Simulated assay, not measured.
Amino acid sequence: MEPLRPLVTVIVPNYNHARFLPLCLQAIKEQTYSPMEIVVVDDHSTDESVRIAESMGVNVIRTPANGGAAVARNTGAAWASGDILFFVDSDVALAPDAVAVGVALLEKDPNLGAACGIEDPEPLIRSTRVEDYRALQHHYWSIASEGEVSFLWSAMFAIRAAVFAEVGPFNPRLRYTEEVDYGHRLSRRHTVLITSAIHGRMGHDRELGTLLRKLFHRGRLRVPLYARRRKFAQGYETASRAWGSVAALLAVAALPLPLVFGPVATAVPALLLAASLACDAGMYRFVFSRRCPLFGVFFAGVHFLVNLVIIAGVAAGAAQWFLSGRFRGIYEAPAPAALPAGG
């Protein structure tokens, strides 16, 4: 007689992802693991998300107002009865064995706090080249970080319910950086692993402006956390990539030099651009090995712009950190309790 396997609660936080939700839920229903329960926590969507989820026969909890991903995840955890929680964002379609692999990793290593997955290099639904850019860029940065990290990949991860209760809920005051904060808190007590053994396809922003706004705020809101802890997260955000953003900014700042010092000064912005590209040379080799040269040039151009936006966000965050005591303390306040189940 086989031993009873732990119940897994799959928690799907959702806000206006009706475009992806059917693929996400169908992939969960096709998981090879059992026993399993599914709950969608709809964070006050204005699209057809609730109707879609209910039509697919899953449990749906609605939040009374849009509180952000942290609130949605906490609400799902409060509702869950599983021994293991598997969080998956509503724009992710898991590989069929993702839950089984997550459970196996947690059972194999009692010191493992969370097992996080890596999204595939192809977007879940492709409609623009911006989605292709983001899928490849995010995949490569994640793969390059594979192993032990202090940064939580919150799009898909497995965690014991007891560990979640021990560490406490996501801080519902945070948007854009709640997973960075949670990863720091979790990794102080337990190992956090990111692995390509858990994977799935992810939906990405279709429009460049939407992506850039998101990255700007993520850069801005990391400043008080890293200033307080005096170090970057382990994995993903490397010193080399930080210097790549700085070099991109300096390259733009150096553009007027030829007007002052003549054509010889053209070499300065060119060298700074080359330095920015060299800081993430592995990513560019990866992209050019998979896609045509024309797309590679497009990718490099978009990523240069992304570097500028990230450094602008960090600069804005630094200014806000100096000017606002409230901003400096956003990670220090104790996280309020999760919304009650069924709230």
Results as ranks from 00 to 15, higher is better:
178 E>L: 13
11 I>N: 02
72 A>Y: 03
122 E>S: 14
11 I>V: 15
38 I>A: 06
183 G>V: 14
237 E>S: 09
61 I>D: 02
322 F>W: 11
157 F>R: 00
40 V>L: 09
330 I>T: 08
268 V>Q: 01
281 A>V: 14
96 P>K: 10
228 R>V: 00
316 A>H: 05
15 Y>D: 00
298 F>H: 08
133 Y>R: 02
8 V>T: 11
23 L>W: 02
97 D>L: 09
106 L>K: 05
161 A>S: 15
204 H>F: 15
232 F>V: 11
175 R>Q: 10
197 A>G: 06
296 G>H: 03
173 R>D: 12
291 R>D: 05
312 A>D: 00
8 V>K: 03
140 Y>I: 02
132 D>L: 10
158 A>D: 02
123 P>W: 05
236 Y>F: 15
101 V>H: 01
202 M>W: 03
292 C>E: 13
159 I>Y: 00
51 R>K: 14
58 V>N: 03
56 M>P: 05
319 A>F: 05
152 L>S: 06
34 S>H: 13
293 P>M: 07
323 L>W: 07
293 P>W: 01
328 R>Q: 11
320 Q>H: 10
80 A>E: 06
32 T>L: 07
19 R>G: 00
324 S>F: 12
64 P>I: 07
327 F>I: 06
257 L>G: 04
205 D>G: 03
240 S>P: 00
177 T>E: 08
114 A>W: 02
198 I>V: 14
102 G>I: 04
134 R>E: 15
224 P>E: 03
194 I>N: 06
64 P>Q: 08
215 L>G: 00
313 G>S: 05
160 R>K: 09
301 G>H: 03
343 G>Q: 12
126 R>K: 15
113 G>V: 02
290 R>G: 04
157 F>P: 00
235 G>H: 03
259 L>S: 14
261 F>V: 10
204 H>S: 04
106 L>M: 11
217 H>M: 11
95 A>G: 10
72 A>L: 05
255 L>P: 12
101 V>A: 07
208 L>Y: 13
133 Y>V: 08
114 A>T: 07
158 A>I: 02
343 G>K: 05
119 E>V: 14
203 G>I: 04
235 G>S: 08
72 A>G: 05
205 D>F: 15
240 S>L: 10
280 D>I: 14
216 F>A: 01
19 R>E: 10
176 Y>S: 11
138 H>G: 12
168 G>L: 11
292 C>Y: 06
4 L>F: 03
233 A>T: 13
70 A>N: 05
238 T>N: 06
118 I>S: 06
245 S>E: 04
114 A>C: 12
116 C>V: 09
295 F>P: 02
77 A>L: 06
164 F>H: 12
317 G>P: 01
42 D>N: 11
